[in-house]
C-alpha cells in the first residue's frame, strides 16, 4: 500500500555485524578482568563490623556534629574543607586560562595546540595524592597544601573544558563588530569576553563541586580538611565519630550540589 515505509525499512542501517563485534570485544575484556577477583569468603568478624558501621550511621556522634566551639568540631572542619576547595578552584580557574588559550586550535594553530593539549593531559593524569605529598614538602601539613594541590590539579579538567568553549566561539559576532568599526580591544571586550564568561564561570562552579569531594579525601595525606578525622576514627573503630564526619560530608556536598546546579542553570539560561 505504502511502498515508502517498506523500502525505507529495507534501507535501515545494518548494525548487526558492528554490534556483534563490539559485544564479543566487551565480553572478552570483561571475562579477562574477572581474574582480578580473589574472593575467599567474607570475614565473619568483618560482617559484625559492617553491621555496627551501618548502625552507627543512624546515631552519629552529635557532640562533634553540632559543636561550633572548641575541640573537634565537624562544622569547623567542613568550613575548612570548603575553604580549601573554594580557594583552590579560584586558583585553578585563573591558572587554566593561559593553558586553555594555548591549546585552543582556533587561536594558536595545530602545533601549539597539540603541545598544550599534551600538557593538559599530563596534569589531568597526575594523581592528586602525589601532588598533595609534594606540596606538603613545601608548606608542611595543613590546609594551605590542600589549596595548592586542588588548584594545580584543577587546571587539567578546567582548561580542557575551557578549550572546548573557546573553540566554540561564534566568529560571526566578531565580524559584525568589525563591520561597525570596532578596534581590537573593543572586539575582545564586546565580542569575545561576553561569550566566554558565563561558560567559564559555569565550568569553574562545576569543578568546585568536584573539588569539595576531593578536599574531603585530601587530608588522608595530611593536607587539611575533614578526611583525616574520618579515617582516624575508622582506624580506631570509633564508628559514631566516623559517622559524624560522614554526615558532615554528606550534608555539605548535597547543599553545594543543589546551589551549584541552581547557579549554573541560571548562568546557562541567562535568567537572572
Amino acid at each position: 500500500m505504502n511502498p515508502d515505509v517498506q523500502s525505507m525499512y529495507q534501507k535501515r542501517p545494518k548494525t548487526l555485524a558492528r554490534d556483534i563485534t563490539l559485544l564479543i570485544f566487551f565480553t572478552i575484556v570483561i571475562v579477562w578482568s574477572t581474574q582480578t577477583i580473589h574472593f575467599d569468603g567474607l570475614n565473619p568478624a568483618g560482617i559484625v563490623i559492617s553491621r555496627s558501621i551501618l548502625d552507627a550511621l543512624t546515631k552519629p556522634n552529635l557532640e562533634w556534629l553540632l559543636n561550633f566551639g572548641e575541640g573537634t568540631s565537624i562544622p569547623k572542619l567542613m568550613l575548612e574543607t570548603v575553604a580549601m576547595a573554594f580557594l583552590g578552584t579560584i586558583l585553578g580557574a585563573i591558572l587554566a586560562i593561559p593553558f586553555a588559550f594555548l591549546s585552543a586550535r582556533n587561536i594558536t594553530g595545530r602545533f601549539a595546540s597539540f603541545f598544550g593539549n599534551t600538557l593538559i593531559g599530563m596534569i589531568r593524569t597526575f594523581p592528586i595524592f602525589i601532588l598533595g605529598l609534594m606540596f606538603i614538602r613545601v608548606t608542611g601539613p595543613g590546609p594551605l597544601a590542600g589549596v595548592l594541590t586542588i588548584g594545580i590539579s584543577s587546571i587539567g579538567m578546567i582548561s580542557k573544558l575551557y578549550v572546548e568553549i573557546i573553540e566554540d566561539i561564534d566568529s560571526g559576532i566578531i565580524m559584525a563588530l568589525d563591520a561597525t568599526g570596532a578596534n581590537s580591544f573593543q572586539k575582545i571586550r564586546y565580542g569575545i569576553i561576553p561569550q566566554l564568561t558565563p561558560n567559564f564561570i559555569s565550568t569553574a562552579i562545576y569543578r568546585f563541586e568536584i573539588n569539595v569531594r576531593n578536599a574531603t579525601i585530601l587530608s588522608l595525606v595530611g593536607a587539611g580538611g575533614i578526611g583525616f578525622t574520618l579515617t582516624a576514627a575508622l582506624a580506631v573503630y570509633r564508628w559514631v565519630d566516623a559517622a559524624a564526619a560522614l554526615w558532615g560530608i554528606v550534608i555539605v556536598v548535597l547543599v553545594i550540589e543543589v546551589i551549584s546546579n541552581k547557579v549554573r542553570s541560571m548562568l546557562v539560561s541567562g535568567d537572572r
Binding site: 570475614n43 568483618g46 559492617s50 579525601i217 575508622l234
Partner: peptide, 13 residues
C-alpha cells in the same frame, strides 16, 4: 567519597 567505601569494605572483604 570512593575511598571511604573502600576503607569500610576492607573490614568485610
Amino acid at each position: 567519597p570512593t575511598l571511604v567505601y573502600a576503607a569500610i569494605l576492607a573490614f568485610a572483604f
